[in-house]
Each structure stands twice: as C-alpha cells, then as structure tokens.
Computed example of a mutant assay.
Amino acid sequence: MAAHNEEMVIGPLLENLKQLDYPKDLYDVYIICDNCTDKTSQVAASYGVSAMERFDDKRKGKGFAVEWMLEHLWKRSRQVDAVIVFDADNLVSKNFLIEMNKKLLEGHRVIQSYFETKNPYDSWVTLSYAITYWFINRMWQQARHNWGMASTLAGTGMCIEAKLLKEMGWNSTSLTEDVEFTARCIGRGIYPTWASNAIVYDEKPITLASSVRQRLRWMRGHTDCARKYMKPLILKSLQTRKFAQFDAAMYLFQPIRFLFVAAVWVMSSLQLATPLYTQFDLLKMIPDWAWIGLNIVLFLQFPLVMLLERRPWKAYLGLILFPIFQFTWFPITLIGILTSKNKTWNHTKHTRAIKIEDLAG
C-alpha cells in the first residue's frame, strides 16, 4: 500500500488484513510511507507490518512509490509469487487472497477484484460514485470477462504475478498507473482477468469539489496514456487480428466516449427543448422520438444494474442527482484532455476510519 499521510485511515485496513482467511505465514504486508509528515509509519509499525519510508520531492505519486517498493522487494531474501496493490483507505473481503490464489493457480498473471464503494451513503457524490462502479462491475468488467476479453485494472485490489513484474518492470508512473499497466500488459498479449468474488472497498470523496479534483487527475492520466498506447495497440490488433487488443485500445478512447454522450445531450436539448430546430433544419434529420429513446436507454441502464446487483432501495435515491454527477464528467473530460501535460499528483484526503465490521453491519 502506498500511503501519503494516512494515519487516520490505515489502521482499519491493517487490522482487516490480519484477519484474512489465508495462512498468515504465506503473505506479508508492506506500507510505503510516501513523503509522509504525519504518524503513518508509526501506526503501520504498531500493527507489525513493514513500514517503508520514502522521501522524494521530484518523483511524486503512487506509480513512483510502487516502483520504488518493488525494487526493494526483489532484493529481499524472502521472494513472493505475486504482488497485490491496495490503497491505504481500502478494506477487503476476508476471502480476498483465497480468490486471488485460485486465479493464479489457473494460470492468470494479472487479476482485478470487484470494486466496491466503502462509503456510498456519506453524500450524494459518494452514492453517485457507487452507482458508477456498480455499473462498471456488471456491464464492463463482468461482461468483458464473460466474452473472454481483457479486464481493466482499477488501481487498487489488483494482483500481479511477481515473475511478470520482473520481466516487464512496473514502469507505470503516469497519473493513472492502472490504465498504463493495463495497456502495457495487453500490448504483450497478457490479458488481465476478473475476480468477481474478491472485493475491495474504496473510500470515495464526499464533496463535489474533491471529486472534481480526483476525476480531473484521472482524465489527464487517461488522455496521456491514450496518446502513448492507443495507436500501438490498434496497429498490433490489426497485425494479430485479435479483437481483445482492439477492445483495449477502445478503452483508451474513454475520454472521447464521455464527450460523445455530452454531444447526445446537447443535440437532444437543441432539438427538444429549444426553438433552434426551426432555424436549423439539419437538426431534424433525426426524429424527436429517437433522441428521447436514446436518452432513456442511457439512463435506464443504471437502475437496471442496481436491480441485477440487488442493491437496497435507499440506493435508488441516488438516481435523482446522478445525472448531475454524470454531467460534470463533460467539462472535467474536456479540461483533462486540454491539460493532459499537467502531471501534478493531487492527494485525496481520507479521514474516516471505517472497519470491515461496520460494512458487514
């Protein structure tokens, strides 16, 4: 776990990891205390785990911290079969290592777990995050897994074979190291798989302002990775005629997808809610019912997923403000594309020490 000033939240995770249903002598826990100015290292050490302190004012961010830790890990006398990356604010299901071990024994080299929101009911923003990830888990990760395509890494709850890491190196230090490592794996013909029964719980920002900062970093990193890896993946997919590689290239196209949805909303508004269509006949080339139907389909997929995922009825209240959350993606995406050369890492502050027992209740 890479941790920057996480003394408030790291304790519950470390306690959680001590209670996993797995032989305790078969896994080690390392905390990368990355440029910490608080008591993160002392808290980590009090739980009997390895607290590794790192100070670097130039190479900041999780990607650099993980790379630094791996270099130290390979030098240790006790070598490992796989590495799992978590964030300091996470919690995990007790069967997590059992499920990852199953996948490794099946021959998979890169595995992503089910991504759950730890604090869905803290605010309308966190509930919007939860709805988004319920959709991603069901309609993106599970669907792609069912079709034999590559899953995408989520930055946390991901398991990577140690031998593979030594072969290709980490070398993923962009603002979205998970997107970058996914692209590099698929470029080598290694397809990450999906472990739906292993769950990682991730804390989400409570306020819209902090959410915007986090998602802007994601879009900048995603755009940067698309610039580096999208063209090579498309060319390789044409050479190998493997749809999975083309599909991975389309994942890097994600920021443009948001802008496409924005265009649908704008065109719908121009035709249905304003008199502009009387001035521009071109807008009427698509009938009103088609715009209405398209928007209904785009929205109804979310409550459909919630039904399939058997979410509690109070979660459906989040659908009231969810369109606002979705709409904020559009300026964030546009700004992210235009400022993708900004590599500044913005830390998301976490303050709630939620325990795994609180989630079970």
Score class of each variant (00 low, 15 high):
residue 217 R to F: 06
residue 235 L to Y: 05
residue 211 S to T: 07
residue 255 P to I: 05
residue 205 P to N: 00
residue 223 T to C: 13
residue 250 M to T: 09
residue 208 L to I: 08
residue 206 I to K: 10
residue 250 M to F: 13
residue 207 T to N: 06
residue 210 S to I: 08
residue 235 L to G: 06
residue 249 A to M: 06
residue 208 L to G: 02
residue 255 P to D: 07
residue 239 Q to D: 10
residue 235 L to M: 08
residue 210 S to Q: 11
residue 221 G to L: 02
residue 249 A to I: 03
residue 256 I to F: 12
residue 206 I to M: 11
residue 263 A to Q: 08
residue 217 R to S: 13
residue 211 S to G: 08
residue 250 M to L: 13
residue 260 F to S: 15
residue 239 Q to A: 07
residue 212 V to L: 13
residue 223 T to A: 13
residue 211 S to W: 00
residue 248 A to W: 02
residue 249 A to V: 06
residue 215 R to H: 15
residue 252 L to T: 09
residue 243 F to V: 00
residue 258 F to E: 12
residue 256 I to S: 12
residue 258 F to L: 08
residue 230 M to H: 07
residue 248 A to Q: 08
residue 209 A to E: 15
residue 238 L to Q: 09
residue 235 L to F: 08
residue 247 D to K: 02
residue 206 I to L: 12
residue 232 P to T: 14
residue 226 A to D: 08
residue 237 S to I: 00
residue 232 P to G: 08
residue 257 R to M: 14
residue 219 M to T: 05
residue 243 F to K: 02
residue 204 K to Q: 12
residue 261 V to E: 14
residue 227 R to W: 09
residue 231 K to H: 11
residue 256 I to R: 13
residue 224 D to W: 07
residue 239 Q to L: 07
residue 234 I to Q: 00
residue 232 P to S: 06
residue 225 C to S: 13
residue 223 T to S: 14
residue 263 A to L: 09
residue 255 P to G: 05
residue 220 R to S: 03
residue 234 I to S: 03
residue 234 I to F: 03
residue 240 T to E: 08
residue 243 F to T: 03
residue 209 A to R: 15
residue 208 L to H: 04
residue 251 Y to P: 00
residue 243 F to A: 00
residue 209 A to Q: 15
residue 234 I to K: 02
residue 262 A to N: 14
residue 211 S to P: 01
residue 262 A to Y: 13
residue 215 R to A: 10
residue 246 F to E: 03
residue 226 A to G: 13
residue 244 A to W: 11
residue 205 P to D: 02
residue 216 L to T: 04
residue 210 S to M: 13
residue 248 A to G: 00
residue 220 R to A: 06
residue 220 R to N: 01
residue 237 S to C: 00
residue 261 V to I: 14
residue 230 M to D: 10
residue 258 F to A: 04
residue 218 W to G: 01
residue 234 I to V: 10
residue 245 Q to T: 09
residue 208 L to E: 14
residue 216 L to R: 01
residue 248 A to F: 03
